[in-house]
Structures are given as structure tokens and as C-alpha cells.
Design a binder for these strands. Structure first.
Length: 466
RNA sequence: GGUGCCAUCGCCAAGUGGUAAGGCCGCAGCCUGCAAAGCUGCUAUCCCCAGUUCAAAUCUGGGUGGCACCUCCA
């Protein structure tokens, strides 16, 4: 398998630190609001990565954190006049539910900042002892970026002392504008923790380093984890700072491979609070099955910038529909076959830095071939076996086609409408038997008004949500 | 201002030295009572200019046009 390492900026063959095992850490959400499409994209990308690694016979230990200590959370709690914990628990659950709806499996480990404080304290102490951190007069503790000669080697930024730094009105007590907080001494009591350094709260960058050390790292290895991932915006300063913390407090570098997924834009613009164009996952899920959203967000290479729009989402649905129609065609059959050439090719494509486009092209080709043969030789048992096996493989490795195909095509149609449609179909079939096509066409128009389409097949008349 | 990324058919999107995958849309046909679905066929020389090479969408240089990060951010 090959992975593009966004720090070395090249595609590298993936060789795990320990044979047969992979440690993966991905920066998770700060739980103060619902997940937007960007969160979904990131979760989806690393869900896919995990599946591919598994398919290669590797045992993946995947950790994704929940940041439940943050100024934004405090603000939200204040605005809504709610308890901090109420906010974080609510949005953590929302996150889990939303991720589940797009087929993202839960990571093995989901550490929370509030549950990892001791690990952070230990790391701060070691940084202080080693001369990499200092305490200011007002009790804040900063990482001394000047003390790390490898600082900025990750993002390959040029240290500039110039006026650029001036625009950030940071604490004048910092030795260097680039220094970042490990511990913020806070006097208010909204969200503070007792520590050996007094009361306050930890800096954001610290939690990831500490969690990796606590849950995934082994001191004897050259890196804390095999793969560290996150959104492209995290490379600097977040990952740069994480890397510095780990480098200076332990005897190894943080990660062997770095992976950063591209951004999701809305109509060509970055999603942001200030632009007011955030697109929440839950809104997309009102219109489309979660798997359609999954398919759409995954259908473009993970490193590319992704421009979200509803037209392309609808197009993605049409492509996913083809998988489900083939599944519907073979519904109820329980046949098995050995690994097929298609499956080998699919994995090979995904092993090349997750080349999803090639993978989807292979799937389309497989579907076409299967449909063609099924059209002409309906009793082709060997092909059916092979096709079912291929569909099962697609489900497992990509998470496409996991639902009951009939239910999939009925997304958004309520029970009342369903029974009404069923009645009308019966009436129409009667009319058809009587060769009363005028009446059957009239009934079809009536059925279509439910926003569905009809298909007459040898095994009966079916409808699908358009 | 600094750093980096990108520019391929109407739209989405692979390919990164060997002569342009795939999907959507469109057109023609098969199938169908008619449809829908499915199937078949058809549709680009890769932003511009110059260079390297037997050979470039792919490498180099120069343009033009987008975008991202440098501040919390997936």
C-alpha cells in the first residue's frame, strides 16, 4: 500500500512500525456544534483508510479524540445558559449519531480531553524539566519554540520575526510570538481544572500529543504512531505544535506518516462561521440517505479540495443507485464465491493512496458487465455468485450498498404514501391485465406524483423514490 | 507580504513521460403496450507561450486564472 505523506510530500510505501499492526490517530471534533460536511469528510476518509488497511490484513488501532475543553464550548454554554457538560455530551452524541448515519465505524479509542488531563500534566512537567517550557508571571505555561531546533520542519514554514506576528495581539509575556500555550491559568470557574501548576485549563495542541502517548505510543519505537491524520488546515499550527511537544518530551517523533484531507467548500467558498455558509451534515441527511452523502463525499480523492453542491450530490446518488439496482436484481440469493479478479483490482486501486476514482470506475465496469450478462443469460449461476461476492466486497471495503435495496429506494417516503402507492400499483396492474392502457397510464401519472418512478419487471412492479 | 496547491469533454473526475479511465447530461438504437430500469454505439488532445525528449496532459521556464494556510477551524 502507498500513502501520500503530506510532510515528506511524496507517495511512500506504507510499512508499519510493528508487523501486522497499525496505529492511527486522527484529530476529532470540538464538541460545541453539529458536524458540518468537513467533519464528515475527514471522518469518512479515515474510515475508508481503516477499511483498506484491514483489507490488507493489518490490525488497525484507531484513536480519534473528542475535544471537550475549549473556549468555543464555554461561549456556547454561556449563550445557551447551559452547563458545559450538557453541551459537550449533547454534541458528542450528535456526532456519534451523525457519523453512524454515514456509515463511519467507531474508532477503537475515543479519548476525551477531560479524561486525559493527567497525561497532559505529565507531558507539561517533562517539557518544563527539559527546558522546553516556561511559566509566565501570570501562571501560563508556554512551549518555548526557540528551544526546539526542529520546530517548523513539519510544515516547512519560514520562521519570520517580522511584522506579520504583530497582527496577533498575543500575550506580551510570551518570549516569542510563536510560542503556544500548554497551560492557561484561568481565574474564572466556568471550566477550570486543578493541576500541579495551579488551576486553569490545557492548551488545545497538548491533548493530541498526550493522548497518543497514553493510548498508542510505545517508547521503544521510533514514532508515536504509524499514521497521524486530520484536515489540511491542521498541519499548521496544530500538528506542528503537537509534533514539537512529543519530540521534546519523549525520545521519538510523533508520527511516521502524516495524512491531510482536503477541504470541503460550499459553492467555491470555504465554509466558515463568519461567512455564514456552514453546511451541516444533518441538513444533507434530511434530503438524502446517509449512504448517498457518504458516497458523494468519498467520490473525490481525499486530498483534493471538494466543492459541495446539491447537483453533484444528486449525480452521486445516481451512481450509487446502480449498485443498489444490481443488488436488487440479485436480492435474496445466498451464493458465495472465492476472491475475484475484480476484488483484487479494487483493492489494488485503493492501495494506491486511496485512488477512489479508479475504484469507482472498476465498480461501474463490473456492474455493467454483470447487468449485460444477466440481461442475456438470466440463469448464469457462476456470474451471480461472483457478482454477489463482489457486491459484498464493495460493502465491506467502501461501505456502499450496505442497506436493503428496497428500503434504500424508498428513502423519505412515509408509510401512508407507501400503502397508497401499493394500492395504486394493484389497480394499475389490473388495468394492464385488461389491456386498459389508458387507465394504467393515468394511474402511473398518479403514482408519479408521489415523487417516485415505476418499473415493470418480470418479477413484479417496483417503485423508487426519484 | 510569506508558503503551498491547482487548472483535463457542458458538469463531476482519474491518469503525472509512451500516445486521454469512469460517472452525469445529450444523441441514436435494443428491450417495453408505452415507460422506467438495463444494455449497445457516439461525443475532448488535456489554460496559454516557449523549451527538453524519438515521445509530454504528464518534465523545465515564463505567463494567465483559481484556491488554501500563515488566527480558532476537519
Amino acid at each position: 500500500m502507498y500513502i501520500f505523506d503530506s510532510v515528506k510530500k511524496e507517495k511512500r510505501e506504507f510499512i508499519p512500525l510493528q508487523e501486522g499492526k497499525v496505529t492511527l490517530y486522527v484529530c476529532g471534533p470540538t464538541v460545541y456544534d453539529n458536524a458540518h460536511l468537513g467533519h464528515a469528510k475527514s471522518a469518512l476518509v479515515f474510515d475508508l483508510l481503516t477499511r483498506i488497511l484491514n483489507a490488507n490484513g493489518l490490525n488497525v488501532v484507531y484513536a480519534r479524540n473528542i475535544t471537550d475543553i475549549d473556549d468555543k464550548i464555554i461561549k456556547k454554554a454561556a449563550v445557551q445558559n447551559k452547563d458545559i457538560k450538557e453541551i459537550t455530551e449533547f454534541y458528542t452524541n450528535e456526532f456519534y449519531k451523525e457519523m453512524e448515519s454515514i456509515g463511519v465505524a467507531r474508532p477503537n479509542i475515543e479519548p476525551k480531553a477531560t479524561e486525559s488531563l493527567n497525561a497532559m500534566f505529565e507531558m507539561i512537567q517533562r517539557l518544563i524539566d527539559a527546558g522546553h517550557a516556561y511559566t509566565t508571571q501570570d501562571g501560563d505555561i508556554y512551549f518555548d519554540t526557540k528551544s526546539d531546533s526542529d520546530y517548523l520542519t513539519l510544515s516547512k514554514r519560514v520562521q519570520d520575526e517580522g511584522d506579520k506576528q504583530e497582527r496577533v495581539k498575543s500575550s506580551t509575556l510570551k518570549k516569542n510570538p510563536a510560542d503556544f500555550a500548554l497551560w492557561k491559568s484561568v481565574k474564572d470557574d466556568t471550566l477550570t481544572f486543578e493541576s500541579p501548576f495551579g488551576s486553569g485549563r490545557p492548551g488545545w495542541h497538548l491533548e493530541c500529543s498526550a493522548m497518543i502517548e497514553k493510548h498508542l505510543a510505545q517508547p521503544q519505537l521510533a514514532f508515536g504512531v504509524d499514521i497521524h491524520g486530520g484536515g489540511a488546515d491542521l498541519l499548521f499550527p496544530h500538528h506542528e505544535n503537537e509534533a514539537a511537544q512529543t519530540r521534546c518530551s519523549s525520545n521519538h517523533e510523533l508520527a511516521n506518516y502524516w495524512m491531510h484531507n482536503g477541504f470541503v467548500n460550499i459553492n467555491g467558498e470555504k465554509m466558515s462561521k463568519s461567512l455564514g455558509n456552514s453546511f451541516f451534515l444533518k441538513d444533507a441527511l434530511k434530503e438524502y440517505d446517509g449512504e448517498v452523502v457518504r458516497f458523494y463525499l468519498l467520490s473525490t480523492h481525499y486530498r483534493s479540495n471538494f466543492n459541495f453542491n446539491t447537483e453533484d450530490l444528486a449525480t452521486a446518488k445516481k451512481r450509487l443507485d446502480k449498485i443498489y439496482r444490481l443488488k436488487k436484481r440479485l436480492f435474496g440469493l445466498a451464493l458465495h464465491s472465492d476472491t475475484t479478479e475484480f476484488q483484487n483490482n479494487l483493492l489494488e486501486a485503493l492501495n494506491d493512496d486511496m485512488n477512489i476514482s479508479t475504484a469507482l470506475a472498476l465498480i461501474d465496469e463490473m456492474i455493467s458487465n454483470a447487468n449485460e450478462i444477466l440481461d442475456t443469460a438470466g440463469k448464469h449461476k457462476a456470474l451471480k455468485k461472483e457478482t454477489l461476492s463482489n457486491l459484498a466486497y464493495i460493502e465491506k471495503i467502501l461501505g456502499f450498498g450496505v442497506k436493503n435495496p428496497f428500503e434504500y429506494f424508498q428513502f423519505g417516503i412515509d408509510e401512508e404514501a407507501k400503502s397508497a402507492i401499493a394500492t395504486l400499483i394493484k389497480q394499475r396492474n389490473t388495468a394492464k391485465e385488461e389491456k386498459n392502457f389508458e387507465e394504467s397510464d393515468r394511474l402511473r401519472e398518479e403514482i408519479l406524483s408521489f415523487g417516485v418512478t415505476l418499473m415493470d419487471t418480470p418479477s413484479g412492479t417496483f417503485w423508487e423514490k426519484i
